[in-house]
């Protein structure tokens, strides 16, 4: 029981992080919820094996992002599914139209990235340094730097086009 309480507290504490990771890899609310559940399940499965060798958030990012990869293409958009950009707005309920528009644009740009770029972009947006991004992704720090500058260029081009 103590384990369940500790696990639930951990998920509650990091639900914002899980929400963001799952929204990056899905394009509608139904799939996002499904992926969210799958990530929580995978975290529960590996909860015992987590040793404090890395930061808890690093472990959560790794499990969540790796789970998202294995779920790619399994999901199909359902007719009643809410597009992810809309569901984010419902979730954030800010009432700030400018913010909502920027959020829509943000997800539109992220959608155009490939799966590796999405992962890097997520960590970049989360304010992670190259060292931590390298630790989570398994890429070298210099490789992270190169890829991120490539993503920035790509985004810039896309932004000019749109």
């Amino acid at each position: 029981m103590a384990k369940e309480i500790a696990f639930a507290a951990l998920v509650r504490e990091h639900q914002g992080l899980l929400f963001k990771v799952t929204s990056i890899y899905t394009d509608n609310e139904t799939d996002r919820e499904d992926l969210f559940q799958e990530v929580v399940y995978q975290l529960w499965r590996s909860f015992d094996s987590f040793r404090n060798e890395s930061k808890i958030s690093t472990w959560i990012y790794r499990v969540a992002m790796n789970t998202a990869i294995t779920q790619l293409k399994k999901r199909k958009r359902r007719p009643d599914a809410i597009p992810i950009s809309e569901s984010i707005l419902i979730h954030s309920e800010s009432g700030d139209e400018d913010f909502e528009e920027r959020l829509r644009m943000l997800y539109k740009h992220i959608e155009r990235l490939d799966v590796l770029e999405k992962g890097l972009m997520l960590l970049l947006l989360e304010g992670k340094g190259y060292k931590e991004i390298a630790e989570i992704t398994g890429l070298s720090e210099s490789n992270v730097g190169t890829r991120i500058s490539r993503i920035k260029k790509k985004l810039k081009t896309n932004m000019i086009k749109s």
Partner: peptide
């Protein structure tokens, strides 16, 4: 984009919808 993401993160932090 970064500031929109940060703003969203703050709003998400305020919402702790899930219970044990």
């Amino acid at each position: 984009l970064q500031s929109a993401w940060t703003q969203m993160s703050h709003q998400l932090e305020k919402q702790k919808e899930l219970t044990n």
